[in-house]
Design a protein around this nucleic acid. Structure first.
Lengths: 195, 195, 195, 195
DNA sequence: GGCTAATCGAGACGGTACGTCACGTCTTACT
DNA sequence: AGTAAGACGTGACGTACCGTCTCGATTAGCC
């Protein structure tokens, strides 16, 4: 039925959609999230403001759609031979993403907004690229040799990077391999509460 | 001359300053950071908007000043008998602060704003309540028995809590004592790169 | 050739046309002219906006077509035995139309728009229901016993009603028979400029 | 108390007020009422849109304030020696105002809007320049020698001019002196219903 | 019975004005 | 000089219609 409905009337302009998302991408890099305005996006995309409102209800929503794919890609690392190599590669990707990539800036901006806007918080929680990618990697690297939940494990892996970046601390001179080794050691020795 | 000049005219009203900070505190609890407006603060404080602008340049700055003391207090735990008790108490305080306290909400909002505003980022980095309190506790609990920098250690302690909270994940059923034990074990076994 | 061309293709839907005019009639009564919107008409009539634009170029044009017949009818009184009865009946009809009937509201709205829109002014002047009906009645009641133009006479008959209604004055307690008598007296005594 | 209140804070900018009213005057002549937009007025006056909204709630309200004084002036004729001269002069002024003056165009536009907007209707009825000026003149010219209400008399005087103008009829070749004489004759002969 | 062509519904599109909101600055009188 | 009050210019917000534009689906006359 929804497919039938979708065929009625003038179809949505794919060109407009793409132009908007590209404009958001560009403006994010050029001006940052805060300075980004719906009017600005519309003008940059050569699109009417109304068209944007028709499909998204928030600046954050557009940003999410515009940056999600990039984020997903940047955090999706290739399979490595050893768990150590795998985790190390992920940590490198994570730092590159969070601290240096435009998609990461978008992600941080969204996390920022989420602190004040429940709607955005929900959006972010529903498809948390960061947490999910970490869990994926951990599962791939360690399989069943893990005695805590994936959620906990991902927090332990991601948190120590996430926190200093968000708080504005410099991460220079960080040795990803050492962090990866520490993470693995901890995962193997960790025992469930009953142990 | 400038000192002489500074003493001329009506002195700054300390009452106004206090009223403003209290108003911010109250409004933060009642409406949250996003809904807080300078006009609202002024009206609540019974103060003119101009007076606010004279002493602070940003909403974030006022918020920082208004919530810093509370934050400091909430994160400053009493001395305990054992390192385990100490770290456990700190983790409890940390979660209470970050996830449930108004001052924590203010802190999260500031972290959020900092992602988009360099000025706020600088402000936040200059007196990072969270990181500093963690370092203080770690130093007190472990003294010299630590082979990594305090910065790293604090990231490892705080990050795994900070990340899920900021991302909107639920923290229900978290066992602080277990986390504290894991942290201590890790700190004691951790070896410097050369090890 | 153009006639041949015009006969090809799907013919105009008479049902749509009627639905539109009825929708305008209804909406005029329910919401008034100002609140009437092309989108609203289309939805009420179960017709696409484009279909309306295909056949009318202005909201006023539709309104004119939709209300003209009603107006004509309401202002077309039956023949009476005496001129006094005739004029009295007309005045009654005129007041009923202008001040109380939906068609009259439409007419007033059109007069209003005409003050600002030359196109509507032309439309209104081309088939002025009010003036024409008045002239018809005067001619029927007085025939040749009139020394001024019908236009002047109709202005004298209609104007003193038209003015207060348009200006929003109440007309309560108006004695139509007296006004009719006065009009007739005046018409009979009135002398051409040379008199 | 209200006087005391008015002295607090920055006083209303008389320059802005005048600029707005002048802009409305100008735009009315240049573009007409319909094409006049609040945005346009603001830009023309070199004033912010907000400032307009602060003091007026409707385009019509501004227009009313902007044109009322002019209208009052144009319809306020000097005293003449005879009633005939007086009425004749008034009719001349009335035609000049309604059919040719910018203030008259404003008045007609307001009458037009009033047909669709109760708020404007109220505004117009509350200070009806046209009706009041007519009543003033009639009273001055005839004093007590009048057997009907001033309202009725003014409708009889004004209506026959008002109607054709509003309906878009040409008034060329109208002999004001003849109309004035007719009006006076009628006023003197008119008898109350009981007579 | 297929072809051509105009109409119809639905609904997306670029525009543009609307009225509101908060901002940061200014101009008063008062203290 | 500092303060409360409050008006000012600025500029984004989200909404509402406007008139135009695609779509697929009808519905007629014509070959």
């Amino acid at each position: 039925m929804s497919t039938a409905r979708a065929r009625v009337g003038r179809p949505r302009s794919e060109a407009a959609r793409a132009a908007i998302l590209h404009a958001v991408d560009d403006l994010l890099v050029e001006q940052g999230y805060a300075a980004m305005t719906l009017k600005g996006i519309a003008e940059r995309a050569g699109v009417s403001r109304q068209t944007i409102y028709r499909w998204w209800s928030t600046k954050a929503e557009i940003l999410f759609e515009a940056s999600w794919t990039d984020a997903e890609e940047e955090l999706n690392i290739e399979t490595s031979a050893t768990p150590l190599a795998e985790i190390t590669a992920y940590l490198e990707a994570l730092i590159r993403f969070l601290a240096h990539s435009p998609a990461g800036a978008a992600y941080r901006a969204l996390v920022g907004e989420a602190q004040q806007d429940a709607e955005i918080a929900k959006l972010l929680a529903s498809r948390d690229v960061l947490g999910e990618s970490a869990q994926r990697v951990i599962k791939r690297a360690l399989g069943d040799e893990i005695s805590i939940t994936l959620e906990e494990a991902s927090a332990i892996l991601v948190g120590p990077i996430f926190f200093p970046v968000l708080v504005g601390r410099e991460l220079t001179g960080l040795d990803e391999a050492r962090w990866a080794k520490r993470f693995l050691t901890q995962m193997q020795r960790d025992q469930p509460p009953a142990g």
